[in-house]
Structures are given as structure tokens and as C-alpha cells.
């Protein structure tokens, strides 16, 4: 299986990428790790006139801490998040999610930004970004925008990104307070997309109450879902079993799954509930064990 023919260019500078995108509009496709785009090209589901490879642009890779944020270059490979072990204790959910994405070989190529921009409703990073309240830095020839993760995912493979924009960075706020999180994914085998997954990120206040809770759901709707009602019911509460169960129930209700070969809608909704419940317990335990 081979792609249809296209032109290819790999500029060395971001400006060049941006001007190519503004010039070619919808005819152009950005190529990052290629682990979603190339399969689509091979299946001829995508047939761009020109492929703009951002692989040669400097400064788009790496995980750094700066000004109360963890900043992840858009072209950072899944694999490099997986090995960013100093995120443990701050952003557990990233470290737990990364190794569950596709398989070790795909993780060596695929990028966080590519995954977020691709916006597969079953893509794992979307749910994680919603849970941790990430912001996406996107650039075009016309300038820069910073888009919150909440609201970014609009539908299957559709986002707030414009066709002339490139995502350059993902910023995740890491405030004071003890935090914990985790990612639970139901997959049929390694390399499978999620049937259901849940990202959970909890910050405890000095009083031991839940300061904020972030919950993202994967593969149970037209796009990654932020379970806002569940988050709200947790905020400011003592982390009791009852509160957790109620939040999990609400998260299950926030899911909008469709029946398919992986299971019925009821099944997926229930697994979302179970995962959020388990995830909250783990996240809270971790946060309670973490140093402030």
C-alpha cells in the first residue's frame, strides 16, 4: 500500500513552515512523527498536494519546567515523555499515559503535538491534556495564539487549530499543593487504541481537601471529553469514598459512547465510571503520599 503522489519539503525554520502553510492552505499537511498521517496517506484517506515536514525545525522538542509550567515541545516524542521521570509526583498522569500509547516503536516516532492536533477521539493525549488543564501554543504567519485544552477538541479529528497554524508547545500549569494522578486505559492488546480510557489529576489543598480535580475521558465520544460535573463535585471536598463514587458516576454520565465491536454504549459508560473511581483513589493516595 502506497500513498498517492505529493510534494515534500522539510524547512529548517519555523517561519518558512508558516509561510508555506499560509501559501498552500488546505492543500498542505504538516508532518510531525508521521505515525497518524502516513497510515492515512497509505490508505489514501488523505491526499495532500504538499507535505511540510517540521522535523528539521529547531526548538520544538523537549520537556522543561519554567515559570510554574511544564512545557512540552510539540514535536516531543511519546517516548521522551515516557522517560521524563522527574514528572513523577507532579504530573503522574503523563507518565502513566505515555507508555500506554500505541506500541514502543510508534512511541519512538509519534509526537505529543501531532497526537493533540490529530485529535483522534481515541487518542490518549487529548484526555490527559483536559485533565491537567493544558494550554496549546499555536503559531501562524499572522502571529501566536494560546488555546486552552478545554474547548480545543471539537469533533472527530477536528480542533480549534487553523489550517495555516502549527502547534509549537504544550504548557501545563503546575501550581503549589500536593498532586497525584493516573491514567487507566482499556485496550484489547498492546498497540490498540483505547476502548475507554480515563485521565485523572488531583491537587490537594493544605487542609487535605481536594483543591482541584481534572478528569479527561478518551474514546467515549466524538472527541476527548472533560468531565466537568465530576470535577466540580470534587472541588473543595474531603476525599471520601462517597464523594469519589459520586464523581465517578457523574463522569460515566458525561461519556457519550457509541456501541461498536468493542462493546455496547452501556459497557463503555460503566468502564468510564469504574476507571474514574479507581483513578481517583490512586490519584488521591499518590497526592497524599506526595511532598507538598
Amino acid at each position: 500500500m502506497f500513498p498517492a503522489a505529493f510534494d515534500y519539503i522539510a524547512p529548517g525554520a519555523l517561519d518558512e513552515v508558516l509561510s508555506l502553510l499560509s501559501q498552500h492552505g488546505d492543500d498542505a499537511k504538516v508532518l510531525a512523527g508521521g505515525q497518524s498521517l502516513i497510515p492515512l496517506l497509505k490508505l489514501r484517506f488523505a491526499a495532500p498536494v504538499i507535505v511540510v515536514d517540521i522535523g528539521r525545525v529547531d526548538g520544538l522538542e523537549g520537556v522543561r519546567r519554567e515559570n510554574g509550567h511544564v512545557r512540552i515541545g510539540a514535536r516531543t516524542r511519546h517516548r521522551d515523555v515516557e522517560s521524563a521521570s522527574d514528572l513523577r509526583g507532579t504530573l503522574d498522569v503523563l507518565l502513566d499515559a505515555a507508555p500506554l500509547i500505541s506500541d514502543p516503536l510508534i512511541r519512538n516516532m509519534g509526537t505529543v503535538g501531532g497526537s493533540v492536533c490529530h485529535a483522534d477521539p481515541a487518542g490518549d493525549w487529548g484526555a490527559v491534556m483536559l485533565a491537567v488543564g493544558a494550554e496549546f501554543v499555536v503559531k501562524s504567519a499572522g502571529g501566536e495564539r494560546v488555546l486552552p485544552a478545554a474547548g480545543f477538541f471539537e469533533g472527530p479529528f477536528t480542533t480549534g487549530l487553523h489550517s495555516d497554524e502549527v502547534m509549537t508547545e504544550i504548557r501545563i500549569p503546575v501550581g503549589a499543593g500536593r498532586s497525584g494522578g493516573t491514567y487507566l486505559k482499556l485496550e484489547r492488546k498492546v498497540g490498540d487504541f483505547a476502548s475507554v480510557a480515563a485521565a485523572v489529576h488531583v491537587v490537594l489543598g493544605g487542609d487535605g481537601r481536594i483543591a482541584t480535580a481534572g478528569i479527561g475521558l478518551c474514546a467515549v465520544g466524538a472527541h476527548s471529553i472533560k468531565a466537568t460535573a465530576a470535577e466540580a463535585v470534587l472541588a473543595g471536598q474531603e476525599p471520601t469514598d462517597a464523594v469519589i463514587a459520586e464523581a465517578a458516576r457523574l463522569a460515566g454520565e458525561a461519556a457519550e459512547p457509541k456501541a461498536d465491536i468493542r462493546g455496547s454504549a452501556e459497557y463503555k459508560r460503566d468502564v468510564a465510571r469504574v476507571f474514574v473511581q479507581r483513578g481517583l483513589h490512586t490519584a488521591i493516595n499518590r497526592a497524599q503520599g506526595a511532598a507538598a
Binding site: Y8, K42, D53, L105, I106, N108, M109
Partner: peptide, 22 residues
Amino acid sequence: CGACTVLLDGRPVKSCTLLAPM
């Protein structure tokens, strides 16, 4: 499937999911 695995700068990747110019 990984039948196409090669090492790219030492890391294993799937060569069916790479374009030659990369």
C-alpha cells in the same frame, strides 16, 4: 506488525510508516 522494523539513529521504528525523505 513490526515486520518492517529498522533502527533509526539507534531507535527501532516501523519503516513502513516512514517516508524516504525523512
